[in-house]
């Protein structure tokens, strides 16, 4: 494998958790809900996925457990923001703080234990193709799932009735309610989807990226995923591009550290966070684009008249 292949491979590995978490949040936000709890859902997915895989020995059961952990955490968010109409920003923070604490508690018995790595899929012959073989046909299954999810979300949002309903609910919940759509139910479903993909993103960290449990191993990726959604102006195709760009920045920092050039390692570690801020600034200069695509009722609770 050539060095350039190796770099591209690691970039894909670094980008996939961002893409997974962000594609779910994109759907959540399109339905008019702002869930700032990605970091919390993701870290819960990571610890539950690791624990289940470690106990059962099956990485796939770990993935399943992570997904359910993400959904369960997201439904807590749904209960508060949709049923009890709490402030979505504060509730998202609560989910993050709770998730970080709870995962630490659950994971305290798993620190330093060997994990189970999700095996790569290797398509015979095709993965042996020069240059692109390993890259396109020899990834781990979650990479393919993330791509399928992205394409699926783009298709569903733009071409199906379900997508139309989600967009309608996100734009004007009063009108959607007046037409007889169950705003809260639609949003619950979207929130659960977001929880599932955040759980998957967490599983990716603890079952593929570094198959072990490390406290706070999400390291702010949930927040970067949130920034990516803003950066994408709520368009799945731009989201994917953004995620791979960010993965690239992340890996660039790691490689630069590895090569031991004279830049402080802390500066290189800070690159993804600095890049996030820069990306948000760049996208904001085209304000019209982001304003038009912004779901108009983003972050507002909905209580129907009775």
């Amino acid at each position: 494998m050539s060095p350039y292949e190796a770099i591209l491979l690691t970039i894909i590995t670094a980008s996939t958790p961002l893409l997974l978490a962000a594609i779910g949040e994109l759907v959540v936000e399109r339905s008019g809900v702002l869930n700032l709890g990605i970091e919390g859902m993701m870290v819960m997915g990571a610890v539950c996925g690791f624990a289940a895989a470690h106990v059962t020995g099956s990485a796939w059961l770990g993935v399943l457990a992570a997904t359910f952990a993400g959904i369960a955490t997201s439904l807590l968010f749904g209960l508060l923001t949709q049923t009890l109409i709490t402030n979505q920003v504060a509730t998202g923070l609560a989910i993050t703080l709770l998730g970080l604490g709870l995962s630490g508690l659950i994971g305290s018995g798993f620190v330093g234990l060997p994990g189970v790595k999700l095996a790569n899929v290797s398509i015979p012959w095709l993965s042996d193709l020069p240059y692109v073989g390993r890259l396109i046909f020899g990834q781990d299954p979650l990479v393919y799932i993330s791509i399928v999810l992205t394409v699926g979300v783009a298709y569903v949002l733009n071409n199906t009735r379900v997508g139309l309903i989600i967009r309608a609910v996100g734009q004007n919940h009063h009108s959607a309610h007046a037409l007889g759509y169950r705003v809260v139910a639609v949003r619950y479903a979207c929130i659960a989807f977001g929880g599932a993909t955040s759980g998957l993103a967490g599983a990716y960290l603890s079952l593929v990226y570094t198959p072990q449990w490390i406290e706070n191993m999400t390291a702010g990726r949930g927040w970067i995923a949130l920034a990516l959604v803003v950066f994408s102006t709520w368009l799945p195709e731009r989201l994917a591009a953004g995620a791979y760009l960010f993965g690239g920045v992340w890996i660039l920092g790691l490689y630069a550290q590895g090569m031991g050039i004279g830049i402080p390692s802390q500066l290189l570690s800070a690159l993804p966070y600095i890049a996030t801020i820069l990306a948000l600034v760049i996208i904001s200069t085209n304000r019209r684009l982001s304003v038009i695509n912004t779901p108009a009722s983003l972050g507002q609770g909905f209580v129907p008249d009775r």
Binding site: L164, I165, R167, A168, Q171, L179, Y181
Partner: peptide
């Protein structure tokens, strides 16, 4: 109500600004 044959035009329209006419109608 619509199934029964009752239609209503609201004072404050229940429309979606960023959707097309056809999408708006289809939703109902």
């Amino acid at each position: 109500a619509r199934d029964l044959g009752i239609g209503m035009v609201f004072q404050h329209f229940s429309l979606f600004e960023a959707l097309t006419v056809v999408e708006n109608i289809s939703l109902a």
